[in-house]
């Protein structure tokens, strides 16, 4: 009765060909934890589901000498179990670990989290703070987009209908560099972020020489906050600098009031989280 069909290509090329050949709704199934819920509300629609989990390159994470090449469909449970990746990017692992339950982490992927483009996605601020680059493939070849430019609005991203996210590349951190991600939820687990903050800092001889701060769930997309980073760079990452970064995040936040939090609450919380995440990242970068 319904027009749903399903394919599970085994190569990127095959997936790109399927995308190019199809008309109508096409959904990429990576983790499925958002897609399958969205499908429940749309009985009878024509759609093609392309499961990318049989494409081995999309399910792997490789650490090269200078970068992490993250297959976008690799599930968070597998990612968070990778001690080698955690050593490089503890904040990214924290963000992946916070997505849903153990069960959801057994399905959900960083690439799916990114493409689904929820304002409250946990891994997106972490990716932005790390300066991640998204490699996109389509009928006319490949292109790359910075993580902060990938999401264009609530539930929308920069990819055309016939494009596919192939790989997320994150450069190996400079020496004395570390990241951290924190989010605020009312319970201890399972909730969607009311606000989130990811911070990456480099600390040399007690001075912050480089920083990136990204915040989530406080605007239509996760935001890179250069003013917060500027407050940290050149400082000793002491109380004053962290407070200044927090204030910059609060100022940059453009949240809405909904069932998960009010504008005032979110603006306040994102500052608290920025300060705390920066403190954790700083301690990590100092090797504490």
């Amino acid at each position: 009765m319904t027009g749903t069909s399903y394919r599970s290509p085994e190569s990127i090329e095959e997936a790109v060909d399927l995308l190019a050949a199809s008309s109508g709704t096409v959904d990429i199934l990576a983790g499925g934890t958002d897609l399958i819920i969205q499908m429940q509300g749309s009985i009878g629609d024509q759609r093609l589901i392309i499961n990318v989990k049989h494409i081995s390159e999309m399910m792997q994470a490789t650490l090269t000498d200078d970068a992490l090449l993250l297959g976008p469909a690799m599930c968070c449970a597998e990612l968070t179990s990778r001690a080698d990746i955690k050593q490089w990017f503890p904040g990214l692992i924290e963000s992946a670990y916070l997505i849903g339950s153990s069960q959801v982490q057994g399905r959900a992927s960083v690439g799916g989290n990114l493409c689904n483009a929820s304002p409250a996605a946990d891994t997106i601020p972490a990716l932005i703070a790390l300066g991640a680059v998204c490699h996109i493939v389509g009928p006319s070849g490949e292109r790359s987009v910075n993580a902060e430019d990938f999401v264009t609005g609530v539930s929308s991203n920069c990819m055309a209908d016939n494009e596919l996210l192939r790989c997320i590349q994150i450069a190996r951190p400079e020496p004395n560099t570390a990241d951290a991600y924190l989010r605020f939820i009312p319970r201890s687990e399972m909730d969607i972020a009311v606000a989130g903050a990811a911070v990456s800092v480099t600390v040399n001889d007690g001075v912050c020489t480089s920083a990136r701060v990204a915040i989530g769930a406080v605007a239509t997309t996760a935001l890179l906050v250069p003013a917060a980073a500027a407050a940290l760079v050149g400082s000793d990452l002491g109380e004053d600098a962290l407070d200044a970064a927090a204030a910059a995040s609060t100022l940059a936040a453009k949240p809405i009031t909904d069932r998960r939090g009010t504008v005032e609450f979110r603006k306040h919380i994102v500052g608290v989280l920025t300060k705390r995440a920066a403190g954790i990242a700083a301690a990590r970068a100092r090797g504490n």
Partner: peptide, 20 residues
């Protein structure tokens, strides 16, 4: 909660065709 290839998941968030 069920396992798919040894990994814990919610069966409501898995398509039956993926069991193939």
């Amino acid at each position: 909660s069920v396992t798919v290839n040894g990994r814990l998941v919610c069966a409501c968030l898995v398509l039956a065709v993926e069991a193939d």
